[in-house]
Design a protein around this nucleic acid. Sequence first.
DNA 1: TCAACGATTTTCT
DNA 2: GAAAATCGTTGAG
Length: 208
Amino acid sequence: MRPRTSHHTDAASPLEARRLSLRALPRRFYARDTELVARDLIGRVLECTRRGVRVRGVITETEAYLGEHDPACHAAVGRTARTAGLYGPPGTAYVYFIYGMYWCVNAVTRAEGLPSAVLIRGVQPLEGLPAMRRRRPHARADADLANGPGKLCLAFGIDGPAHHGADLVRGAGLRILAGAPVSDAAVTVTPRIGISKAKDWPLRWVMG
DNA sequence: TCAACGATTTTCT
DNA sequence: GAAAATCGTTGAG
């Protein structure tokens, strides 16, 4: 006799037991203060489909980058070819290349012309684990497949040429689904990681 | 034209 | 815990 939840999943975490909405988050979700969006993105589902391969995971770690007056935000240098994406419409992807070898993905927030975004720093793998393992041969455990901004872009197949400027709301490739919100008790706030400017600002949110 | 550095990850000591 | 790998962006010359 098969279990009642009979559809097969390769998910390997307690998160699979949560009831997750697979509706894409609407544009208005992103058109708010960046801190609110960063906090509210915890528990949501990042999805990337490339060449018929779909990968999903629950967002567990985010950081807010507030705009031209945030010294750690790329937009602190103003509008350049590199930072132009931060000035784009809310709900689009800002993907940048770092340290000569990694990509990082952000969700653009607030309104077009206001350069702010949420860096997605960690994801709990949910679906498409075989593809993630193939793309992350060095990962020792499944929990390590996407628990970092560079790692998750590798595991999800996210890169600048394919995804910079992508529409997270209505796109076909890279999207963020409603998933399930997380209570305040399950979220911790800390300073942002790996930056030298404005290092004490409490703009990082972590599940757990 | 060039040097320094960065929203990182991995490996080595 | 330290250091290497590796390159686009930025700002100074």
